[in-house]
Simulated scan of single mutants.
Amino acid sequence: MANSPQSKKRARQSEARYAVNKARRSRIRTYLRKVEEALASGDQAAAATALAAAQPEMARGVTKGVLHKNTVARKMSRLSSRVKALATA
């Protein structure tokens, strides 16, 4: 347990930051789920709009330190290629 005032403050800050980061991760996952659902339905237009909405959220996750840059780049690339493949199919 935190004893000094500094360690108590750090514990409070850590809890607050954890809550914010958890909310950000949840928000990003929601956007990703919407893209996945649009892909599963086979609707290319809906998938493209869902991906366009998800990309800024994912990029914001990188700038806020919630997700790693390469992870987001990989996810964006794979999702965009799946949406593009849906258009040609």
Rank of each mutant, 00 (worst) to 15 (best):
M1L: 11
M1G: 13
A2Y: 02
A2G: 04
N3Q: 12
S4L: 06
P5Q: 04
Q6E: 14
Q6S: 14
K8M: 09
K8H: 08
K8S: 08
K9W: 12
K9L: 14
R10C: 08
R10S: 14
A11M: 13
A11H: 06
A11D: 12
Q13R: 07
S14H: 14
E15H: 15
E15V: 07
A16C: 07
A16P: 08
A16Y: 05
A16K: 08
V20N: 13
N21R: 09
A23S: 13
R24Q: 09
R25L: 12
R25E: 10
R25N: 11
S26T: 08
S26N: 09
S26F: 06
R27T: 13
I28D: 03
I28V: 07
R29W: 08
R29Q: 09
R29S: 10
L32I: 04
L32Q: 02
L32D: 01
L32K: 00
L32R: 02
L32M: 07
R33T: 05
K34L: 12
K34I: 06
K34V: 03
V35R: 01
E36W: 01
E36P: 00
A38L: 02
A38C: 02
A38G: 01
A38D: 01
L39T: 01
A40D: 04
S41Y: 08
D43E: 04
D43F: 04
Q44L: 09
Q44C: 14
A45E: 13
A45G: 09
A45C: 05
A45R: 14
A46M: 07
A46F: 05
A46Q: 14
A46G: 11
A47L: 06
A47C: 07
A50N: 03
A50M: 10
A54S: 05
A54V: 07
Q55C: 10
E57F: 09
M58P: 04
A59T: 11
R60I: 02
R60L: 06
R60D: 03
R60M: 05
R60S: 05
V62N: 02
V62C: 03
V62W: 00
T63I: 06
V66H: 02
V66K: 00
V66D: 00
V66C: 03
L67I: 04
K69V: 00
K69C: 00
N70T: 03
V72Q: 01
V72N: 02
V72I: 00
A73N: 05
A73L: 01
A73P: 07
R74F: 09
R74G: 10
R74E: 08
R74C: 00
R74L: 11
R74T: 09
M76K: 08
S77D: 07
R78K: 12
R78H: 10
R78T: 11
R78L: 15
L79K: 04
S80H: 06
S81T: 15
S81D: 14
S81V: 14
R82S: 11
K84Q: 15
K84T: 11
A85R: 15
L86D: 05
L86N: 00
A87E: 15
A87N: 14
T88M: 10
A89P: 04
